[in-house]
């Protein structure tokens, strides 16, 4: 668990006072147990408003109440504001770099992504919302796997590291093309066995602290661990900018951090285990709009 940071914490504390009032009102109406910001809307560039909650998917069987919430609702007003304007959102530097890489030939074949896929806006629309998914060969792949498959097998270029800046630039640029589209991962059919394993991991109590993802993000979202306001741990905004790290953070990188915080040994970024966990966690946000690239602290 992280140490409270002066200013950051004070802000959250103030936020908490208003949130408490909001919760009192909510409880009076017999609504959910959470205390996300209820009085703010995620309107991007003053134009497009993204819903930050959705009816909870059936498979959760009420585990999160009747509503799932974006992590955006649990952050302080300044952090929320950064995500409302693409000029203020630091991730857009990485989007630009990703789009440049999209158009730049690389590898022994001398081809760029654009040579095969044309405009990123058209060919990559909706992809992020449906990943991870099962390939024709029956493997569960995340977006990073697809990117490296093209690089190594079609471009004759080297694979990028899962958490490398180049990879995050590209997954952010591709993810942005699905912004506003509902998360729509398949969890039945061939995906079902992977999903089941991810679910089992989500409820496993790892590390010396014996904590599962569910202990923090299901049982206690809306509560505070020291100065950390716990969200539902949704992944519809990844890759996202983390102010604390001053950089882009991938989904698996976040999983690593949370498992380390249990005094545990995390699985590796890109591992089979984390792709299964990614599928399961994505499915806990089914129906919520993709927010990529989000901003968090």
């Amino acid at each position: 668990m992280t140490s409270p940071k002066g200013e950051d914490g004070i802000m959250k504390r103030q936020h908490r006072a208003t949130a408490v009032a909001a919760v009192a009102a909510m409880l009076a109406m017999g609504a959910a147990q959470a205390e996300p910001a209820k009085d703010d809307e995620l309107t991007i560039n003053g134009e497009e408003t993204l819903a930050t909650q959705a009816p909870a998917p059936d498979h959760l069987q009420g585990a999160l109440g009747d509503t799932v919430y974006s992590g955006w609702l649990f952050r302080d007003p300044d952090t929320r504001a950064m995500q409302k304007d693409d000029f203020d959102n630091p991730m857009f530097l990485f989007v630009d770099a990703g789009i440049e890489a999209w158009n730049t030939p690389d590898g022994t074949e001398g081809k760029s992504c654009a040579d095969c896929h044309n405009a990123i806006e058209d060919s990559m629309k909706g992809l992020r919302a449906a990943l991870p998914k099962v390939t024709e060969k029956g493997e569960l792949w995340s977006l990073e796997n697809f990117v490296n498959d093209c690089r190594t097998n079609r471009m004759g270029a080297e694979a990028w590291g899962w958490n490398s800046q180049e990879m995050k630039n590209m997954t952010t640029a591709i993810g942005l093309q699905s912004r506003g589209m509902p998360v729509a991962v398949a969890i039945d059919g061939e995906a079902a066995p992977f999903w089941e394993k991810g679910k089992e991991m989500y409820y496993t109590r790892y590390g010396q602290l014996e904590m599962s993802c569910a202990n923090c993000h299901e049982d206690n979202f809306g509560n505070y661990i020291r100065s950390d306001h716990l969200s539902q741990g949704q992944i519809n905004g990844f890759p996202l900018y983390r102010l604390k790290d001053q950089g882009a953070v991938s989904t698996h990188q976040r999983f690593v951090g949370c498992m380390r915080d249990t005094r545990g040994v995390p699985f590796e970024a890109g591992s089979q285990e984390f792709r299964e966990l990614e599928l399961y966690v994505a499915s806990r946000g089914l129906g919520m709009p993709v927010e990529t690239p989000a901003v968090r602290h």
Partner: peptide, 28 residues
């Protein structure tokens, strides 16, 4: 957990058994 089964509270003087324990917060 001996008083409250399934408790969220970590054991402060406990050395196992744990699932994938690491050395403090080193992730190792």
């Amino acid at each position: 957990k001996r008083t409250f089964p399934e408790s969220f509270m970590p054991g402060m003087y406990k050395v196992g058994p744990f699932i994938r324990p690491g050395v403090a917060y080193t992730a190792k």
